[in-house]
Computed example of a mutant assay.
Amino acid sequence: MKDLFKSPEQSRVMLSLLMLPSHANFSGKIHGGYVLSLIDQIAFACASKHSGVYCVTASVDVVDFKAPIEVGEMVTLKASVNYVGKSSMVVGIRVDAENIQTGESKHCNSSFLTMVAKDEEGNTVAVPGLKISNETHVRRFARAIKRKQIKKKSALEIAQANFSDASYKEELKNYNVQISL
């Protein structure tokens, strides 16, 4: 029998990798696309562990690159389920990099992905609820709700806006754009 509720600790996933020259971009830093790929993989693992079924990425809600990652650093990704809906989960990921020679560590990325649980036919399935047992869990769950509300409000505002209105064209003059209509 599946658990009706699981704690974030029950589905937490951690991954550590040494950053190689093949992961670097033209400026010698670890390519952001490579980091995004790792983030997507660990979000999948965390959501699948929580739900007990295959999960897909519904949206990448937040990706904040905070510091560059260097070749030779040990990168650690930590993922946990911060919020659950009926079939969806918001997975929070923290990426840290450590200079293995000095031991100095830095926070490089924070991301939030919405994952959806699917059955073998591709239909959404219900996921276990989230056991909240400390203030960190409460804060993460509440912040996920707030991000979802802001996203919904923003999407509605954009859908309702009339971007061909003359006032928008006038406003664009304040930006680094040349209008030739």
Rank of each mutant, 00 (worst) to 15 (best):
P8L: 10
E9T: 07
S11L: 08
S11K: 01
S11D: 03
R12L: 14
V13P: 01
V13T: 13
V13G: 01
V13N: 01
M14A: 13
L15A: 05
L15T: 04
L15E: 08
L20D: 09
P21V: 05
P21G: 07
S22K: 09
S22C: 09
H23A: 11
N25E: 11
F26A: 14
K29W: 13
K29H: 14
K29G: 03
H31S: 07
G32T: 07
Y34H: 14
Y34V: 11
Y34M: 13
Y34W: 15
L36G: 01
L38G: 00
L38S: 00
L38T: 00
D40R: 00
D40N: 09
Q41H: 13
I42L: 10
I42K: 01
A43W: 10
F44G: 04
A47S: 12
A47Q: 10
S48T: 11
S48P: 04
K49F: 07
S51W: 12
G52N: 05
C55H: 02
T57K: 01
A58F: 03
V62W: 02
V63A: 14
F65Q: 05
K66D: 02
A67V: 02
P68M: 00
I69W: 08
I69S: 04
I69P: 02
I69T: 06
E70D: 15
E70S: 15
V71M: 12
M74H: 06
V75E: 00
V75K: 01
T76H: 04
T76M: 13
L77G: 03
K78L: 13
K78C: 12
S80I: 10
S80W: 04
V84L: 08
V84A: 08
G85D: 07
G85W: 13
G85N: 09
K86A: 09
S88Y: 10
M89P: 03
V90F: 07
V91L: 11
G92M: 12
I93A: 10
I93R: 09
I93D: 06
V95G: 03
V95D: 00
V95K: 01
V95C: 14
D96T: 13
D96C: 14
D96Q: 13
E98N: 06
N99M: 13
N99P: 09
N99K: 11
I100R: 10
I100S: 12
Q101G: 03
Q101M: 13
T102R: 09
T102G: 05
E104D: 12
K106F: 08
K106N: 10
H107C: 13
C108K: 03
C108G: 05
C108E: 02
N109W: 02
S111N: 13
F112T: 06
L113A: 04
